[in-house]
Design a protein around this nucleic acid. Sequence first.
DNA 1: CCCTTCGACTTACAATGTAAGGCGCCTTAC
DNA 2: GTAAGGCGCCTTACATTGTAAGTCGAAGGG
Lengths: 227, 227
Amino acid sequence: MADKTIREPLSRERVLAAAVALADAEGVKALTMRRLATDLGVEAMSLYFYVPSKEALLDGVLGTVFAELAAAAPEPAEGEWRTRLRRRFLAARAVMLRHPWAPGLLTTRGTIPPDVFAYFDWIVGTLLDAGFSHHLAHRAIHAFGSLPFGFAQEVFSPAAAGGSLDPDTAEADLAALAEALPHITAMVAHEMHGAGDPTLGWCDSQVEFEFTLDLLLDGLDRLRARR
Amino acid sequence: MADKTIREPLSRERVLAAAVALADAEGVKALTMRRLATDLGVEAMSLYFYVPSKEALLDGVLGTVFAELAAAAPEPAEGEWRTRLRRRFLAARAVMLRHPWAPGLLTTRGTIPPDVFAYFDWIVGTLLDAGFSHHLAHRAIHAFGSLPFGFAQEVFSPAAAGGSLDPDTAEADLAALAEALPHITAMVAHEMHGAGDPTLGWCDSQVEFEFTLDLLLDGLDRLRARR
DNA sequence: CCCTTCGACTTACAATGTAAGGCGCCTTAC
DNA sequence: GTAAGGCGCCTTACATTGTAAGTCGAAGGG
């Protein structure tokens, strides 16, 4: 909560930063003009001096996140193309993990933040420099989808079927599901018993993300060599 | 609009079907209880006899879409594992293209529709039958993400940078962007001039989707053979 | 002094989801 | 016949949310 006795003047940057902090703390649904204004110690209508509408605020919020990402994932100075892409994608992912609401919000936007243009121009440049054709670079951009930002939309997670990443409770859940979902339960059971370190759980989103990324990079590399 | 003089009784199915139709026609934002009720020729509060809340309505709407998808993408009777997966993924995509708002809505949900569980159980089963280990099948599920439903979240589309898929207007847009985005504009220019059939445009989401899917299937096949 | 600009606040209203209660019709039981 | 209960709808009311339009006080300039 802002301290009303010592009041720092509002600015567009302060408004957007407070909005990001609120979304981080309580999710995008909690981000209302009244709630945000309360956090800033002002009246809701005052925000409209800085952002023309709620929609513009949300655009600005995403722009802020992507700017943070651009700063945290600078262009690697050296390295082979795959290493450079990988390094930057993973750095971006670390930022996005701090704002888990961002991918969902992004699907509601009609515009692309400026930092995204620059980032993809760099990706295309890196691919072209590595010998990819323009056509294959185009293909790669689509194949990467949202991986350059460290997230991928998954409709279904095996962990959701297991009901829990905790081996004790998941064991009972699995038994209940075995008849309806025989293959998934077998797979989950196998993964749970095969997990090396129980404290990490059997389903680690970081490992899965890197696996998918490497799968795509390997495939693209093969196509490049074949040109 | 419903005809109020001859009134068919409401049912949960009618409510959900009307909601899907409204979202298809005008997007999810137009889907309010009052609007939906108007379309059905009843008063908004009457809907609550069939769905306990707006949130439940949205869950039901997605359940309806996924049920449609399950019916339209039946298990292939025969074929090699890749062919079967591919056939079903593409059939699912055809359905999802009729409901372009569905992926976005899905990100706001906390539950998974039942048809999704069954579909993924089939996918895991298909992979296991083809000789994939449980571990690799688990990896594949994450790698596929939302591809089994024919969509993938793309933050950035090269077409968005070009400003238009129409070669005439895009040419001018590109010239304006060349200094800020040199690699992207070069790539877009190349793709536009290389497009075989101008009426299809230089960026075809179906082609791109199939490219990405095949890239992943190829990669997974290699890992399978290496086990 | 007056005027203008800036940055905040106030008042009001439309839109949205929905709690709570009411009403008419139909069915069942006595 | 009447009474009671259930069903499926409607009405009234209210809290919340975004925001249009206008007001006000402070500061700066002429």
